[in-house]
Computed example of a mutant assay.
Amino acid sequence: MTTTIQDRAQGAILGAFIGDALGLGPHWYYDLDELRADYGEWIDDFADPMPGRYHDGLKAGQLSQSGYILTMMIRSLNDCGGYDESDFCKRLDEELFPKLDGTPMSGPGGYTSQSIREIWRQRTIHGIDWQDTGSNADTTEAIERTLAIAVRYATRPSDLAAAIVSNTVLTQTDDTVLSMTVAFGAVLSALVRGRPFDASLSTELMELVKNGNLPFHAVTSDNLQPPKQGSPDPPRAGRFASPDALLTPSYMAAAARDADIRIEPAWKVSIVYGMPCAIYHQLPAAYYLAARFHNDFESAVLHAINGGGQNQARAILTGSLVGAQVGLSHIPKRFLRGLENYSELLELAERLANSIPSVHD
Score class of each variant (00 low, 15 high):
Ser66Ile: 15
Gly61Trp: 01
Ala60Lys: 07
Ala60Ser: 13
Gly52Ala: 10
Gly40Lys: 03
Ile74His: 01
Gly67Tyr: 05
Arg53Asn: 12
Met73Ile: 10
Asp33Thr: 12
Asp44His: 08
Gly57Val: 07
Glu41Gln: 15
Tyr39Pro: 00
Thr71Val: 11
Pro49Cys: 08
His55Glu: 03
Leu35Glu: 04
Lys59Pro: 08
Met50Asn: 08
Thr71Tyr: 14
Glu41Lys: 13
Ile69Ser: 02
Ala37His: 11
Ile74Gln: 03
Leu35Trp: 05
Ala60Pro: 01
Ser64Ala: 11
Gly40Arg: 04
Gly67Lys: 01
Met50His: 12
Gly67Met: 04
Gly67Pro: 03
Met50Tyr: 11
Gly67Ile: 06
Tyr39Arg: 02
Asp38Trp: 13
Ile74Thr: 02
Gly61Tyr: 01
Ile43His: 00
Asp48Gly: 07
Gly57Phe: 09
Ile43Gly: 00
Gly61Asn: 02
Asp45Met: 04
Leu35Ser: 01
Gly67Gln: 03
Pro49Val: 06
Asp45Arg: 10
Asp48Arg: 07
Gly52Lys: 07
Phe46Ile: 02
Trp42Met: 07
Met72Val: 10
Phe46Gln: 00
Gly57Arg: 05
Met72His: 13
Glu34Cys: 09
Glu34Trp: 06
Asp56Val: 08
His55Trp: 08
Gly57Cys: 08
Gly40Gln: 05
Arg36Ala: 12
Ala37Leu: 12
Thr71Met: 14
Ile69Arg: 07
Met72Pro: 06
Met50Asp: 07
Ala47Pro: 01
Leu70Tyr: 06
Asp48Tyr: 12
Leu63Arg: 02
Lys59Gln: 15
Ile74Glu: 03
Met72Trp: 13
Glu34Ile: 08
Asp38Pro: 07
Thr71Ser: 15
Ile69Glu: 10
Met50Gln: 14
Ser64Lys: 03
Leu70His: 05
Gln62Met: 13
Leu63Val: 09
His55Pro: 00
Ile43Ser: 00
Gln65Lys: 08
Asp44Thr: 09
His55Arg: 01
Ala47His: 12
Phe46Cys: 02
